[in-house]
C-alpha cells in the first residue's frame, strides 16, 4: 500500500475559532493506482491534497506514505519526502519563466543532489517521455499551454517519485489539449506510476480507476467507476 491514512483530521485556527477542514479521513491507495479526488469547494479537497503531498501535516491521525510515517515530520524532512517521493503537476504549470524546458525539468534533481551530467541526461529522458525532445531549449513563453503542462509533467516524473499529484492539470487548457494531457497521465500510469488526479470534471474522473468524493471534510464514497447518475457538481473551467 502506497498511501495509508487513518482518521486524519485537520483543524485551522482562524482567530479564536477552530475551523475543521478534515474530520477523520481514512484513505488507502495502492501503488500503481490511478485515482481521482473530487469535491466541491470547501469540501476539504485542497487540505487533503496538501497533506497527501506532504505540504502540510495533519492535526491528528496517521499518514503512512510508502511505509513511512510522515504525519509528524519537521519542515526539513517533509522537503526531503517531497523531493524523493512526490511529483507535483499544477493547474497553472508553475514553470520558471526564464529557464529552458530542460532547466525546468532539472530543477527537482538539483534539490535532490543529483550531479550535473546525470541531471541533464535524466531531464532529457523525461522530456522525451512526454514527447518534447525537440523543445528542450525552449523557454515556457515559447511553448503552447499543452506543451508547458507536458514540461511540468516531465518535471514531476524526473525524480521517479512514488506518487504523481496532479491538481486540476487541465484547468487552464482547452478541452482538446486537456484530453492530450489526460492521455499522457494515463500513459504515465500505465508505465507503473501511482497518479492522483484532483478535478472538478466527472468526465475526467471517469478516465481514472477510482473516484474519491469528499464533502464537508469527510470521504462521501469511493467508487471503482464514476457514477453517471451523480449530480453535476462540476464547475466549468474559466
Amino acid at each position: 500500500m502506497l498511501i495509508d491514512m487513518q482518521h486524519v483530521e485537520k483543524v485551522y485556527r482562524l482567530g479564536k475559532i477552530d475551523v475543521p477542514a478534515l474530520c477523520g479521513v481514512d484513505l488507502q491507495i495502492d501503488a500503481n493506482e490511478y485515482v481521482a479526488i473530487m469535491g466541491p469547494s470547501g469540501s476539504g479537497k485542497s487540505t487533503l491534497m496538501n497533506i497527501v503531498g506532504c505540504l502540510d501535516s495533519p492535526t491528528a491521525g496517521r499518514y503512512l506514505l510508502d511505509g513511512e510515517e510522515v504525519s509528524r515530520l519537521s519542515d526539513n524532512r517533509l522537503s526531503e519526502i517531497r523531493s524523493r517521493k512526490i511529483g507535483f503537476v499544477f493547474q497553472t504549470f508553475n514553470l520558471m519563466p526564464r529557464a529552458t524546458a530542460l532547466r525546468n525539468v532539472e530543477l527537482p534533481l538539483i534539490y535532490a543532489g543529483v550531479p550535473a551530467g546525470r541531471r541533464r541526461q535524466l531531464a532529457a529522458e523525461a522530456l522525451a517521455q512526454v514527447g518534447l525532445s525537440d523543445r528542450i531549449k525552449h523557454k515556457p513563453s515559447e511553448l503552447s499551454g499543452g506543451q508547458r503542462q507536458r514540461v511540468a509533467i516531465a518535471r514531476a516524473l524526473v525524480t521517479e517519485p512514488a506518487l504523481i499529484l496532479a491538481d486540476e492539470p487541465t484547468g487552464n487548457l482547452d478541452s482538446t489539449t486537456g484530453q492530450e494531457i489526460m492521455e499522457i497521465l494515463a500513459a504515465v500510469h500505465r508505465a507503473g506510476n501511482t497518479v492522483i488526479l484532483v478535478t472538478h470534471e466527472e468526465q475526467l474522473a471517469a478516465q481514472t480507476g477510482r473516484t474519491i468524493r469528499l464533502r464537508d471534510g469527510r470521504i462521501e464514497n469511493q467508487d471503482d467507476t464514476a457514477p453517471s447518475a451523480a449530480p453535476q457538481q462540476a464547475v466549468s473551467p474559466p
Binding site: 519542515d75 526539513n76 523531493s83 524523493r84 508553475n94 520558471m96 527537482p108 534539490y111
Partner: peptide
C-alpha cells in the same frame, strides 16, 4: 513568492 512556493513543493528545503 509563487516561485518560492513551487521550489519548496518540488523539494527545496528552507536552506536552499
Amino acid at each position: 513568492i509563487r516561485e518560492i512556493g513551487v521550489r519548496r513543493a518540488i523539494g527545496a528545503k528552507k536552506i536552499h
